[in-house]
Simulated assay, not measured.
Amino acid sequence: MKAYWIAHVNVTDPDQYTQYTQRAPAAFALYGGRFLARGGRSEALEGRPAAQRNVVIEFDSYEQAVACYHSEQYQEAKGHRAGVALADIIIVEGVAPA
Rank of each mutant, 00 (worst) to 15 (best):
Ser61Pro: 05
Gln73Leu: 09
Val56Ile: 14
Ile6Met: 13
Tyr4Trp: 06
Pro25Leu: 05
Pro49Leu: 04
Glu93His: 04
Val55Cys: 10
Arg48Val: 15
Gly47Met: 06
Glu63Tyr: 07
Glu93Phe: 00
Cys68Phe: 03
Val56Glu: 05
Gln22Arg: 12
Arg81Tyr: 03
Val9Trp: 02
Gly33Leu: 01
Thr21Ile: 08
Ala7Met: 06
His8Arg: 14
Ala27Ser: 15
Gly83Asn: 08
Val84Gln: 02
Ala77Cys: 03
His80Cys: 07
Thr21Leu: 01
Thr18Arg: 13
Pro14Ala: 14
Gln16Ile: 07
Tyr17Arg: 06
Pro14Trp: 06
Arg48Gln: 15
Pro49Val: 11
Val55Tyr: 05
Leu86His: 13
Gln64Cys: 09
Phe59Gln: 06
Gln22Asp: 15
Glu76Leu: 00
Phe59Pro: 01
Leu30Phe: 03
Leu86Ser: 12
Ser61Leu: 04
Tyr17Gly: 05
Leu86Glu: 15
Tyr62Trp: 12
Val84Ile: 13
Lys78Pro: 00
Ala26Ser: 10
Arg34Ile: 11
Trp5Val: 06
Val56Ala: 06
Arg81Glu: 04
Pro14Ile: 12
Leu30Thr: 11
Lys78Gly: 02
Ala27Ile: 10
Tyr31Phe: 15
Asn54Val: 14
Gly33Trp: 01
Cys68Asn: 04
Glu43Pro: 01
Leu86Pro: 00
Asp88Asn: 11
Cys68Lys: 01
His8Lys: 13
Gln16Trp: 00
Pro49Arg: 09
Pro97Phe: 10
